[in-house]
Simulated scan of single mutants.
Amino acid sequence: MANTVARRGFTTTRAQLGSPFHYAEGPRTNIPFNPLTKHFFWRYWGFMITGFGAPFAIAVWQTMKTK
């Protein structure tokens, strides 16, 4: 059994960058935004505060609304 596995010759190939089905690899290439921009910090926290706070703000608004 060990000889069979050794004889199979497992190999891997490097992704070809010229192919339309592969993208550049490396740090920050797998995310849909650029964290190196000047205002990324403010945009990030604005998005997080809005996304996390909206459900709570909606709940408070619905609770305080007159029937």
Rank of each mutant, 00 (worst) to 15 (best):
residue 54 A to H: 01
residue 43 R to T: 01
residue 43 R to A: 02
residue 37 T to F: 02
residue 47 F to R: 04
residue 51 G to Y: 13
residue 57 A to I: 11
residue 1 M to P: 01
residue 14 R to V: 12
residue 66 T to K: 15
residue 35 P to M: 02
residue 2 A to S: 10
residue 31 I to S: 11
residue 22 H to C: 01
residue 58 I to M: 08
residue 6 A to P: 00
residue 43 R to M: 05
residue 52 F to W: 13
residue 21 F to H: 15
residue 43 R to K: 13
residue 4 T to Q: 15
residue 35 P to D: 13
residue 23 Y to Q: 11
residue 40 F to H: 15
residue 11 T to S: 14
residue 56 F to V: 11
residue 58 I to P: 00
residue 8 R to A: 05
residue 47 F to A: 03
residue 54 A to W: 01
residue 44 Y to S: 08
residue 37 T to L: 08
residue 14 R to L: 11
residue 34 N to H: 08
residue 40 F to Q: 07
residue 1 M to L: 11
residue 62 Q to P: 00
residue 4 T to C: 05
residue 23 Y to N: 06
residue 41 F to V: 06
residue 55 P to L: 00
residue 3 N to F: 07
residue 54 A to T: 15
residue 65 K to M: 09
residue 61 W to Q: 04
residue 36 L to F: 04
residue 58 I to S: 06
residue 57 A to K: 01
residue 26 G to M: 04
residue 28 R to M: 10
residue 59 A to S: 13
residue 42 W to R: 01
residue 41 F to E: 11
residue 31 I to C: 05
residue 37 T to S: 14
residue 25 E to M: 06
residue 34 N to G: 12
residue 7 R to S: 15
residue 16 Q to K: 15
residue 24 A to H: 10
residue 31 I to H: 02
residue 28 R to K: 10
residue 41 F to D: 10
residue 38 K to A: 06
residue 7 R to K: 14
residue 54 A to Y: 02
residue 20 P to E: 10
residue 16 Q to Y: 08
residue 64 M to E: 06
residue 62 Q to D: 05
residue 17 L to D: 07
residue 39 H to L: 11
residue 37 T to G: 04
residue 10 F to D: 14
residue 34 N to T: 15
residue 61 W to L: 09
residue 26 G to Y: 02
residue 48 M to S: 13
residue 60 V to Y: 01
